[in-house]
């Protein structure tokens, strides 16, 4: 699979897919999309990169171990439910405010969805890379 063309476009494709995955995640609340889809896109991006340049290179490009990315996401999602305690509402109730300057919505739900994104991206990237890795040796 390590053809020249593939290796030449792989970095751009990966970057593009990652960018797109974040976009899909953030717009998910109002248009089709969301954390699950975004996470799967990101995981595919890393899998692609791993196939093109080998797993060690892909791991280096990710900076963090993918499973710790997933763990961070889980923590983020769990924490995003805590502010609702201060309002006396049940755990994970969404809290919305509108930012005073740019008039866009700020919400704990966005954090939650980002957590989902990180979990899916991290866990599945970890699985794909682990399988690729095991075959290389």
């Amino acid at each position: 699979m390590r053809t020249l063309i593939f290796r030449a476009i792989a970095p751009y494709l990966t970057a593009l897919m990652l960018l797109f995955s974040i976009f899909v995640t953030l717009r998910g609340h109002n248009e089709p999309g969301g954390g699950f889809i975004g996470g799967l896109l990101a995981a595919s991006a890393f899998a692609l990169y791993g196939i093109a340049f080998g797993v060690p290179e892909a791991r280096r490009a990710m900076w963090f171990h993918p499973i710790s990315v997933a763990g961070t996401g889980l923590l983020l999602s769990a924490i995003s439910g805590l502010p609702s305690f201060f309002r006396g509402t049940p755990y994970l109730t969404g809290i919305w405010t509108t930012a005073p300057v740019f008039h866009f919505d700020v919400a704990t739900i966005i954090l939650f969805d980002l957590g989902v994104y990180l979990v899916v991206a991290g866990a599945f990237a970890s699985i794909a890379l682990a399988l690729e890795d095991n075959g290389e040796r």
């Binding site: 699950f36 799967l40 866990a123 599945f124 699985i127």
Partner: peptide
């Protein structure tokens, strides 16, 4: 179903490994 798809995929990966 959306969550089910993701969970089935995790399950499938687990079985595969």
């Amino acid at each position: 179903i959306l969550t089910a798809i993701v969970i089935s995929f995790s399950f499938f990966s687990f079985l595969l490994v």
